[in-house]
Design a protein around this nucleic acid. Structure first.
Lengths: 383, 383
DNA sequence: TTGAAAGCGCTAACAT
DNA sequence: ATGTTAGCGCTTTCAA
């Protein structure tokens, strides 16, 4: 019966000149509607309940100036009372915005998500988004059909912008996304990409240079570098910093001491063992990831070596919260709070880009914190 | 000019009887369209390009049977070649589905995201989603207006279902979501909720019972429990397990040894110091969180105590990858891979619910792994 | 086997 | 200050 009343109204409203009748029916209808909390609450229902047009209600709700204050209050109160909130898909379809930002994680580099740092970054970004009324959409992608995925995300249109994680030295995504016209910000830079793009990065080069210099100052001369895959930009920059520090003391980097692979635990273990068993083993290890560092520690332990006395270890991509224990394990680190801040800031930058499409693309370089503990000791005498 | 042609076609297509002309214009148009890769690719453009109706194209794309195989192939090939993928908002508006699942994180329990376990859970869930063509939408919510948020998420309609994280003993969200008719699965149970709901949980009670029994077997009698906030269901269950184990040996739980608060590092530090300074300090600590465990270790270190010799520590919510170091710190844990499996499974269960709304609500209880290392030693003699 | 047309819930240009 | 109307891009009856 209620349905009938509704249909009737719809039928009439298409024709002009029935304003009065329309009002009458509406009022009648509103009697039913009051008993209808929990019913489908959309703009139509709400406007019928109020005896106003959808347009006016929409305007009142979206803060347009041409609505009388009295009407606006009435509308706002009703909306609140009836728990109305606009259907995001319909709104998006009408406005062309989706009020969501996508974070794309490549599937092969699945460890990215498992990386403890990811949670903190995400938390930071989430804060910015929720403050601005945006949602955060996370997708895992198999990286063999990445290009297709980005094209799809553009035409699917369920995000207004994208954060790109883990850029490679020459990352094709940057050109692709630029040409697609989908606003994006890269978390990390891509050294071999010349075009302009928005990014936020940690100064990986400086970080590893300082860490290496610190070890050199302690007297270490054989410093191993356990790096990530060096086609990934951050890993490349870390090696640059390492080499730069050595060069500053007139030292040549030794290939046998530089390893590069996916940063798993077993990788850290395997490479450390191999280096320890070789002639002239390293007295210090500079490790690019907390995960691999666990392997490093296992290997040292297996070899009967004590960290900070026999071999110094500095780990990056790590944090006091995870590493510090009773022994005050030493750290060189992007702290959890700074990672969260990076997330917050990236999101903010991207939202700004979306809101002011005209402005030059923002970039930001963060310095990494340096925290040193007891496991980084002077080079042992036998060296 | 192209625009004109397009408008013309639109104008004509509203009237019947112009089929022939329509075809002609379409063919003409398709010549332009071939030069138009990169143009707005929507169903309309695509169908015009093919000289077919939107209906037929849609049917071909969505696998409806009443399309000729020849047509279907032509459509599919064109769609692929022109990088067409349907607009998610429009599709959603038309179908009433959004092909996205929401994960809601309460803001006050922000540490949930920062919890290293969160990343693994999310990674697992993400795998299930991407395999099924779903997106994952993460929102941070201030928990003072949570109810309003859930109502909004329902009528905004940008997710087809929800994963609820960190349920409380009596969690109002479960009743709310049930009554809203929004499919959801709770990661964890809510002991005081009697209605049926879908959940996946780790057997927290058994886990802590076993850990406590393990310490009791080593001769410990004064075992501290550093628990989370006990209105959170998992924390409550952990205490149950702890008490059950003590009761099994005829021991009364001692209030001074049972602490409960938000699981921060400083909390672990503060409470451990306090207990160590009291008369008759604990010889073992059972800690509910990796984060607080760091504080525990600091406190032990400050007091000049050695873990595994003077005081044993067992940490839950933790993992080999994070905790194990050169010293082989001991662990009692839901391992990272099992957490990821929990995420994968939860997501799968929720998707199944959505696809088969008729079936009884699924539930699943996982057992926690038990891994013990050297830092859990026998009770010292001075006890 | 194909097409026309209505409708999903909203916004915005255009009346009045 | 308020209302009418035409889309946004898709699915889905209904008709042919």
């Amino acid at each position: 019966m209620i349905t009938n009343a509704l249909m009737l109204h719809c039928g009439l409203s298409w024709r002009p000149g029935f304003g009065l009748l329309f009002r009458r029916v509406s009022r009648l209808w509103s009697v039913y509607a009051s008993a209808l909390i929990g019913q489908i609450m959309n703009l139509k229902t709400l406007s019928e309940h109020l005896g106003l047009s959808q347009t006016t209600v929409s305007r009142a709700l979206n803060g347009y100036p041409e609505v009388s204050e009295k009407t606006r209050q009435r509308v706002l109160e009703s909306a609140r009372k009836l728990n109305y909130s606009p259907n995001a898909r319909a709104k998006g379809l009408a406005t062309g915005k989706s009020m969501a930002i996508g974070h794309v994680i490549a599937r092969s580099s699945r460890h990215e998500m498992v990386n403890p740092v990811f949670g903190d970054y995400t938390a930071g970004a989430g804060e910015s988004y929720s403050a601005a009324g945006y949602d955060m959409l996370i997708s895992l992608v198999d990286d063999d059909n990445e290009e297709q995925f980005y094209r799809a995300i553009k035409s699917k249109g369920n995000v207004d912008g994208l954060i790109v994680h883990g850029p490679k030295m020459e990352d094709t995504r940057i050109d692709l996304l630029s040409s697609l016209g989908l606003p994006f910000l890269s978390h990390g830079r891509a050294s071999n990409v010349t075009r302009n793009y928005a990014w936020l990065d940690v100064n990986n080069c400086r970080a590893f240079q300082r860490a290496t210099e610190f070890l050199l100052d302690l007297g270490h001369r054989r410093i191993a570098l356990l790096n990530g895959l060096e086609f990934l930009d951050f890993a490349h920059r870390r090696r640059q910093g390492y080499i730069k520090a050595l060069a500053g003391r007139g030292l040549e980097p030794e290939p046998a001491l530089m390893r590069s692979d996916e940063m798993t635990e077993i990788y850290g273990y395997r490479e450390t063992r191999a280096m320890l068993e070789a002639d002239d083993p390293p007295t210090a290890v500079l490790c690019s990831s907390i995960i691999s560092a666990i392997g490093v520690r296992r290997a040292l332990s297996d070899a009967g070596l004590t960290m900070g006395r026999d071999v110094s270890v500095i780990t990056y991509d790590d944090d006091l919260s995870y590493m510090s224990n009773g022994q005050e394990v030493p750290i060189f680190t992007a702290t959890r709070s700074s990672v969260r801040e990076a997330g917050r800031l990236s999101a903010q930058m991207l939202l700004d880009m979306i809101r002011n499409p005209g402005l030059p693309l923002p970039t930001h370089l963060m310095e990494a914190d340096l925290i040193i503990g007891q496991s980084t000791g002077p080079a042992p005498n036998h060296t």
